[in-house]
Design a protein around this nucleic acid. Structure first.
Length: 545
RNA sequence: GGCCAGUUGGUGAAGCGGCUUAACACACUACCCUUUCACGGUAGCAUUCACGGAUUCGAAUUCCGUACUGGUCACCA
């Protein structure tokens, strides 16, 4: 009788479950290799939470010699957004997360788009119906809503279970009658569970969590024949031989359903790791990241803001494993790939995503790479977001690279660049086009009295110095001649003897030359910009007075 | 409301029965180095781990209760 019902409901499904299984043989991987996946639903932009999960999943697969694949979970056509799939693929690419197989790339375990797999899901549903483990449910939305409000009133658990599952034992004739009427229906699992039993979720991150067994007759196929997440997840991860499922911890409560589905289908469940949600701090309060409220939750935000992808990856790694940061600090020459990620070191509670921390990590990143790499990456950024500066970068390439190289190869590289945007703001004064644009803007931070006697004298004695020491000694002599202390120490001993100290002299030069109070090494800047240009800038400053 | 989880300094967090006078990083403060700023270095910054009780020779670590925070209870994922 169940068989007849199955054929009645799925007349077009000819393929059997056994035939499907044969198409998905076990993967030939070495012992201990992880098969992980990223299973986004294309319902909007890609966000940092997605990226975070994909990043960890890919690292885990890579370092165990396993497989990381992309499966697009598009079972909700109502919420699907145009271009969302491209956004996902581009988002992964933008952060160097490659997948071994999956949507857009192919592979032996496809198709990787769930909407192309409905026949597979239906074949399994048909099998369950024929075994009496699932059934068609003709309840209308109104009926279900009524049940729900009654349950709420009586403070009962909400859902279709036990005596509320009225269509569980429909006779074949009753089903036929419904079908003849053209009534729509869903396929529900006939849950064999009892909520008084406890089951244990062996979560790889959070440890053992005990939960009540599922007794709800979960919908497995919606009325349009498309599976729900629960059903598709269990089948796909079984067929594609996923070993470890990483997902947000909002899925913890539905774990009993997944376990049960695995049991009913005769599958061996995969291992689960439930990741704590990314949170942010706002007005002193911590809350979950919001797709609507937080622009920085969108992956695209980082590219536009000029935040380097490697900085984001490093930050993701420090969030993912609490011991990563210390390891990275001690292994400056290694890359993220060399670090062994583990579930045990993942945070269990909310994970705070802190922009300031990200910034700091980016500074360190920029301080460790070569000027050429920075230049080329920055070029790509400005080409897209600021063509005016892009042109300047091309025109004054050597100048910019020399600038970026100041103090770079020393033991104490500067850390004043956190984003590609900072390159422009930090280096603007070396470009004449920007420097002379607006005097008030250029010198906005400078309000001190300039001792022009000193400046004129400096210009007079200027020559091509052999070394920084050579230069500095000359400045020292000059300072002393003009009534300034040749060292800060001497000045501090008795300030009344001097107009100021050598630091003040250097400051005046710096301010006139750059318009800034904070710059890299002055001697090297002077070399890059040149004495003639320095004279011009002194005049530029004077004339504006 | 039911169920599940979390709660350690200014911030993120390590620790998971004695090695902790609670790691490390960020922030802040002071000093040192330095031509300035930055970088770097040194020191300071929780006698205490949400609160209350219990177990133990010994608890941030185990147990119970309370409070707060987050998650979840769809033909959404």
């Amino acid at each position: 009788m169940n068989k007849e019902l199955a054929n009645l409901l799925f007349p077009n499904i000819k393929i059997t479950v056994d035939e499907i299984e044969a198409k998905y043989p076990a993967r030939d991987l070495k012992e201990g290799a992880y098969v992980t996946r990223f299973g986004p639903s294309p319902t909007g932009f890609m966000h940092v939470g997605n990226l975070y999960g994909a990043f960890i999943s890919s690292m885990l697969a890579k370092q165990t010699g396993g497989v990381f694949y992309l499966r697009v979970e598009d079972t909700d056509s109502k919420r699907e957004k145009e271009g969302a799939v491209d956004a996902i693929i581009n988002g992964l690419k933008a952060f160097d997360i490659d997948y071994d197989e999956g949507y857009g790339k192919g592979g032996a375990y496809g198709p990787y788009l769930q909407s192309e797999r409905v026949e597979i899901y239906q074949a399994y549903a048909k099998k369950l119906v024929s075994e009496g483990k699932a059934y068609p449910c003709f309840m209308s939305e109104e009926e279900i809503a009524d049940i729900r409000s009654g349950q709420e009133l009586r403070k009962e658990k909400i859902g279709i279970y036990g005596s509320y599952a009225v269509d569980r034992d429909l006779s074949l004739d009753e089903v036929k009658e419904h079908l003849a009427n053209g009534d729509s229906y869903v396929i529900r699992l006939k849950s064999p569970g009892d909520s008084h039993n406890e089951i244990i979720l062996h979560d790889l991150i959070k440890g053992d969590i005990s939960l009540p067994e599922n007794d709800i007759d979960e919908v497995i196929l919606k009325k349009d024949g498309i599976p729900t997440y629960h059903f598709a997840h269990v089948i796909d991860d079984h067929l594609m031989h996923t070993t470890h499922v990483l997902r947000g911890d909002e899925w913890v409560p539905s774990f009993p359903k997944h376990l049960q589905l695995n049991q009913v289908l005769g599958f061996k469940p995969c291992k689960y790791a439930h990741i704590a949600p990314l949170t942010k701090k706002e007005d002193g309060k911590i809350r979950k990241f919001s797709k609507r409220k937080d622009p920085e939750f969108a992956v695209s935000y980082y590219e536009e803001a000029g935040i380097p992808k490697e900085g984001v990856r490093l930050y993701l790694a420090t969030l993912a494993n609490t011991n990563f940061e210390e390891w990275y600090l001690q292994n400056k020459d290694k890359s993220i790939e060399d670090f062994k990620f583990s579930f045990k070191k993942m945070p269990t509670g909310g994970t705070l995503f802190d922009m300031e921390k990200l910034n700091n990590i980016c500074r360190t990143y920029f301080s460790r790479i070569s000027a050429d790499v920075i230049y080329n990456d920055a070029l790509k950024y400005y080409k897209k977001y600021d063509e005016e500066f892009y042109d300047l970068m091309i025109k004054d390439k050597d100048k910019l690279i020399s600038f970026l190289n100041i103090e770079r190869d020393s033991k104490r590289p500067r850390k004043d660049i956190a984003t590609y945007k900072d390159i422009k703001t930090e280096s603007a004064y070396i470009f004449n086009d920007l420097f002379y644009k607006d005097r008030n803007e250029t010198y906005k931070d400078i309000d001190e009295k300039i001792d022009y006697d000193v400046i004129n004298k400096y210009i007079e004695i200027y020559r091509d110095f052999n070394s920084e020491d050579d230069w500095y000694n000359q400045v020292k002599v000059l300072a002393e001649e003009m009534g300034y202390a040749p060292s800060v120490k001497m000045y501090k001993e008795d300030p009344t003897l001097y107009k100021g100290h050598i630091g003040d002299v250097c400051e005046m030069i710096r301010h006139l030359l750059t318009g800034r109070v904070k710059t890299p090494n002055l001697y090297q800047l002077l070399k890059i910009i040149g004495i003639d240009e320095f004279k011009n800038r002194v005049e530029f400053y004077k004339n504006g007075k």
